Amino acid sequence: MQVEVTAHNPRWKDDFEKEAQKIMAIYDDLLLEIYHIGSTSVAGLKAKPVIDMMPIVSDINKVDKFDDQMLALGYEPLGENGIVGRRFFRKCNMSSGKRTYHVHIFDPSSQDEIIRHLAFKAYLIAHPEIANQYGNLKSRLGAAFPDDIESYMDGKNAFIKETEKQAVVWYEGNSNS
């Protein structure tokens, strides 16, 4: 998979909103909330142009019965895809083959995963200098590994893990006050 890191595009927020409406229509009463997460959700942050969405549903075990409807929207269901308690879907542009959306579905039993994603986003928004460091790291890695998504992801891993730890502590401290 080709790695493309671009400047933030304000259209990503609208892209999320439009796609979220489609997801909401599928999961309807099962859906509790839907969040725009990942780098495209942070204004000014460089990102791969892939919108990450995190729907929260009341029961993760009921998600699989909607796979045909997700397939009809162009999403490939990938099960837990490495995170227990998650359902992961990816969507690609039909003409270019490039990924356009990732959907990470959780239910309230995966509170640690939900908090991790929300805290990381909120922390980057509240700490633009850290977001800038992250964006620059992604740009360097994208240039170094333009055709090697695994090396790109590996190169971000230590920064993400350390920042997530700080973000969760910060987030939990701010949400409890």
Rank of each mutant, 00 (worst) to 15 (best):
H127Q: 13
I56G: 01
N174T: 03
N132W: 13
G85D: 08
V103M: 09
D15P: 01
N174R: 13
I130R: 15
K98W: 02
N174D: 07
N81F: 15
D59L: 01
V57M: 07
D64H: 03
V5K: 03
Q21C: 01
S96Y: 07
S151Y: 00
A72W: 01
M153R: 10
D68F: 04
G82S: 09
L124V: 01
I37L: 06
D147P: 00
K22T: 05
G79M: 01
F120C: 07
I23P: 04
V42K: 09
G82D: 06
I160M: 08
P55E: 12
K161P: 01
D68Y: 05
L71Y: 02
C92G: 00
I23N: 04
G44P: 08
E164I: 14
S177Y: 12
A119D: 06
I56W: 00
D68H: 09
S109P: 05
G79K: 00
P55Q: 10
N132K: 15
T100D: 12
S39C: 07
V5C: 10
E4Y: 10
K121H: 02
H36P: 03
G173L: 07
N61K: 04
A131V: 00
P146F: 11
S39I: 03
E76K: 12
D28S: 13
Q111Y: 11
R140P: 01
K91Q: 08
A122C: 02
L124W: 06
E129T: 14
M24H: 07
K62H: 10
P49S: 10
D14H: 09
D28G: 05
Q21N: 08
I125R: 15
K91C: 01
F88P: 07
D15Y: 11
T6E: 14
K91E: 02
M94E: 14
L124A: 10
G135H: 03
G74S: 09
T6C: 08
D68G: 06
S96P: 10
D52A: 13
S109C: 06
K62C: 08
C92T: 07
D67V: 00
N136I: 04
E76D: 12
L73I: 03
I56H: 01
S95V: 15
G155Y: 14
K138T: 08
Y134F: 14
S95A: 15
F159R: 04
A7E: 14
